[in-house]
């Protein structure tokens, strides 16, 4: 089972996330997680998906079909190069007064932060890659884990390499509009 992280820049238009997700069911691709938010440019949206896909040809098809959507500007496979990938996990753990300090102390080895404390519960926040989140969850098994919620992934290539060629391009090329079958100047008016 191979997981691949694909990141795409899309136009920030209504329905774009629905359209991207729909494509996976339409084409029979296996979508595991989705994470979407605006970029630094208001009109550009970044959607990162994790897909399960065991062969390169299907992966190529996924990228091409995504790229074919009119609203999708760029598609990049993050898993192909060294990346920083992050996801957020919030974990609510039931813990008695006496064991709490030890748990908080040990959790710091995972860089997990306590973001909420109540007499019988603590909520940990962990921003990391999936492997550390998995091992933290494993570590918590002896405790009473009440709820776990996790976000999808986001990522960037390490170093100088851009994930997207046009991320900083601020002036997309305009297409001069052909005036239908009418010759210029003789546009009929309503």
């Amino acid at each position: 089972m191979r997981m691949t992280t694909i990141s795409m820049l899309t136009e920030n238009r209504p329905g774009v996330l629905a359209r991207v997700c729909h494509l996976f069911s339409r084409r029979g691709f296996n979508l595991l997680s989705v994470c979407a938010e605006r970029t630094d440019r208001f009109e550009v949206y970044c959607i990162t998906v994790v897909v399960r896909c065991d062969d390169d040809r299907t992966l190529e098809q996924i990228c091409k079909q995504l790229r074919k959507l009119v609203d999708v500007e760029e598609v990049t496979i993050l898993s192909n190069a060294p990346t920083i990938e992050r996801q957020v996990a919030l974990i609510k753990v039931g813990v008695e007064e006496g064991r709490r300090d030890a748990l908080v102390e040990e959790s710091s080895h995972f860089s997990a932060k306590v973001v909420d404390l109540s007499p019988k519960c603590a909520i940990f926040e962990l921003v990391s890659d999936e492997f550390r989140i998995e091992s933290f969850l494993k570590f918590l098994e002896p405790y009473r884990v009440i709820e776990v919620v996790r976000s999808g992934k986001i990522g960037l290539f390490r170093g100088e390499r851009h994930s997207f060629a046009n991320l900083k391009q601020s002036n997309p090329v305009a297409i001069p509009l052909p005036a239908g079958s009418l010759a210029a100047g003789e546009r009929k008016t309503y």
Partner: peptide, 10 residues
């Protein structure tokens, strides 16, 4: 009526 259209993904 636009003279030009912007479709950066197309």
């Amino acid at each position: 009526r636009p003279e030009k259209i912007y479709l950066p993904g197309y």
